[in-house]
Write a protein that binds this DNA or RNA. Sequence first.
DNA 1: ACTGTCGATGTCAGTGACTGTCATCGACGC
DNA 2: GCGTCGATGACAGTCACTGACATCGACAGT
Lengths: 188, 188
Amino acid sequence: MSRWEPNARERLAKAALELYGERGYEQTTVAEIAKRAGLTERTFFRHYADKREVLFDGSSALQELFVNAVAEAPQSAAPIDAVAAGLEAVSTVFVGRHGHARRRHAVIVANAVLQERELIKLASLSAALADALRRRGVPEPAASLTAEAGVAVFKIGFERWVEAAEERTMAQFMRESLDELKAVTAGG
Amino acid sequence: MSRWEPNARERLAKAALELYGERGYEQTTVAEIAKRAGLTERTFFRHYADKREVLFDGSSALQELFVNAVAEAPQSAAPIDAVAAGLEAVSTVFVGRHGHARRRHAVIVANAVLQERELIKLASLSAALADALRRRGVPEPAASLTAEAGVAVFKIGFERWVEAAEERTMAQFMRESLDELKAVTAGG
DNA sequence: ACTGTCGATGTCAGTGACTGTCATCGACGC
DNA sequence: GCGTCGATGACAGTCACTGACATCGACAGT
């Protein structure tokens, strides 16, 4: 028998998402989140660096997945196609999570500081992708630009998937967005 | 004779950039910035919403310039070429500001919370550009993707310009980055 | 000149995010 | 049993940010 209930971290994340949804991010104090999770404010900050970070727990795993898929794409694949493989890989982890993603996204869209945090996560993803592309032999600035383009596709594909009904898969939205980007940058 | 020294806002921005550069962003308190500007902490917050915003005073003017250039590009121009016109317009305002841009950029790169603020400014720019493109008749998601692509080019072109010696103009970097993006998204 | 309004600033008290430090106490290996 | 360890609690402190009210030169109207 343990001294405390297990899964403190998960309880905090759940309580935070609930409270941010119920009364809004700014109207929620960290003390309230901790209380709902049966913990104290101090313990919250031992698990999460700040009040925003609690909404971004899975982001480093997602980044890792994306980067690995890019790294493992066939060497014959063009940079943009390696990124496309990453988009496919990432899409699989969202299967069955449409509801959760939607609730979380609604909270983030409602608060500028949360959007800032999301944007820096995407910037970190972009940097990691550029790195993976460079390891595939892609020179700069092509690596960084391909990475930025990939993140732009992910961002817009994700938004459209979240706002859509649940029937269509995320992968479909990603393919559509990528094709659209290719069309739009063609020529010149 | 005025009751106070004029240009309180500019004095605050100058003091903030200096102090952030001297001891770092986190090690600087708002009270110190206000004191160096000959004002009080409360007055700082009357001019700037928070400690970060003081570094982003010109950003709305820059956005306006970019958006207007896109809106005023010839109707015959493709979306990506309208954005290219915006990049040219924006480049002109940085002439002779390489030193200031460099100091400011160094401060921002050193602090995650400042990078977050910069990223949301770029996201705001992207949204405004997408809007301008839609007003030109560009449908979604092409408008948003073109806007994201344009911001990616701006971001990378700006970084390379800031890190380079002063001889080459920002416009040259922007053209190079845009060409590179086109090359990288070609095919498929 | 007299007076009232206005706008930029100062003063002060308060809230809440976040941190450093030390105490607590069950689990676990020995 | 005994000592260590790790997760948590308790508590005091700093600082970003806000609301409310006071101050006082400028300026317009009379």
